[in-house]
Write a protein that binds this DNA or RNA. Structure first.
Lengths: 235, 235
DNA sequence: ACATCAAAGAGAGCGCTGCTCTTGCTTTTC
DNA sequence: GAAAAGCAAGAGCAGCGCTCTCTTTGATGT
């Protein structure tokens, strides 16, 4: 009863996964806005109405894909942080950023799903996307915090923060990275958005006729972001 | 014949504009993916087929809106650069960035149209979006170049660029900002994407439960971007 | 072992969509 | 004034998200 769990539940799990897989496949072909339940069902040999036994609406399917994408991207970032040596914060930071970029380039449509235009009206429910959606910034933060604990965090070298920003960075650090200096917290928060911006420009083709040596340019840019946060230049 | 230009051409111009206006209005209400030609036509008292005399397809309408959005955003950036005193490059830079942010917050769906997920399959034709799409980075570049000409551009203080990046920055500068040092060119190129990333995080709600003092945070972040490009801290 | 119940698939159908094609009408041009 | 071109309207096609009903099928309590 626990091992086999009943043919029905097993089937349900498998079919749910198959639907999401097929949806991801069609997402890559047609894009989120053109994702059609009927096409997914057709491809799976089901009838469209049967799909509603698994997802109550098209938007719920999209939400499930969004949560999966957040988790996949977050895990890629966390694994990169775990792989890189703790003694080299700048390298760890860089590798986290490169992992984000690699995942995004490998899954452009899923990246677009989580960091592109939100489809108005259904805006993925925060109680589902809240935690998975912060795994990347938490990975960046962990790198900075570890560096701080190891005495490897330099000054961010830009003078004190202006007031409302300092207080808020202080509060954010207290809650998410106890002990981290406010300037580093602020730098990481900005770097998160800036990292996504750099990746989005590549994925969405904005750098198309502009930057050729994409990977080197990206690595250089995120290394500077690391320096902003107080993580010394990498070798 | 030139002044009145014929009732027909005048009507065509006006109706085209009315269609785009109504489409923009519906864009704000429903989002790009739900933008419906029929709804636009209905709101205008036309029949849907009549709309095809003005735009051959829904995607062409979207493309027209994209070009308009690029132009509006670019003009906002350029006006901000023109308004700020040339003697204060950091202030000029900051104001350009703030103009981008203000426009995006005022027109979130149009911003999403140009910097969000591209709808696959039709990807706005480069010959239309190419020039308007680079007005913002050109405005940033102009600020840096003016500062350089006025002797107000400091070192970007990060050591020399790694090789493939330096050569490419050199080439980009030669073509788009003759005389600008390569490090500044590279910094501006990265800052463009980073600026859009910061704005997108606000517009798309990614900073929602995270950053409260959005405007101050943004201003601080882009001031740091300015410093990266060699434009000294603003007062 | 059998009856009961809930889950699942099939199919029809509603109102909407983008888009095409044909049919008349109006403005422009010669 | 006649021919040509531009334009709106309407019907119609295939596809969409989604709902409802009906039947089949697997799980469950006695």
């Amino acid at each position: 009863m626990t091992a086999i769990q009943g043919a029905r539940e097993r089937a349900r799990r498998e079919i749910t996964a198959a639907i999401k897989d097929e949806a991801r496949r069609r997402l890559a072909e047609e894009g989120a806005s053109r994702l059609s339940l009927r096409a997914v069902a057709r491809e799976l040999g089901m009838v469209s109405s049967a799909l509603y036994r698994y997802f109550p609406s098209r938007d719920e399917l999209l939400t499930a894909l969004i949560v999966d994408a957040y988790d996949a991207l977050g895990e890629a970032a966390e694994r990169a942080a775990a792989r890189a040596p703790r003694t080299e914060p700048a390298v760890r930071w860089r590798e986290v950023c490169r992992a984000v970029r690699s995942w995004a380039l490998a899954h452009p449509h899923e990246f677009g799903l989580i960091h592109g235009t939100p489809v108005p009206g259904y805006a993925a429910p925060p109680q589902l996307t809240g935690v998975p959606g912060t795994r990347v910034p938490r990975a960046l933060l962990a790198v900075a915090l570890d560096a701080h604990h190891d005495g490897l965090l330099g000054a961010s070298g830009f003078g004190p923060l202006p007031e409302p920003v300092r207080a808020e960075a202080e509060a954010l650090a207290a809650q998410n990275a106890p002990g981290l200096p406010a300037p580093a917290m602020a730098a990481v928060t900005a770097a998160w958005a800036e990292l996504v911006g750099l990746v989005a420009f590549e994925v969405f083709g904005q750098y198309n006729g502009v930057v050729q040596a994409r990977e080197e340019f990206f690595t250089h840019a995120v290394t500077r972001l690391a320096a902003e946060a107080g993580l010394g230049a990498a070798p």
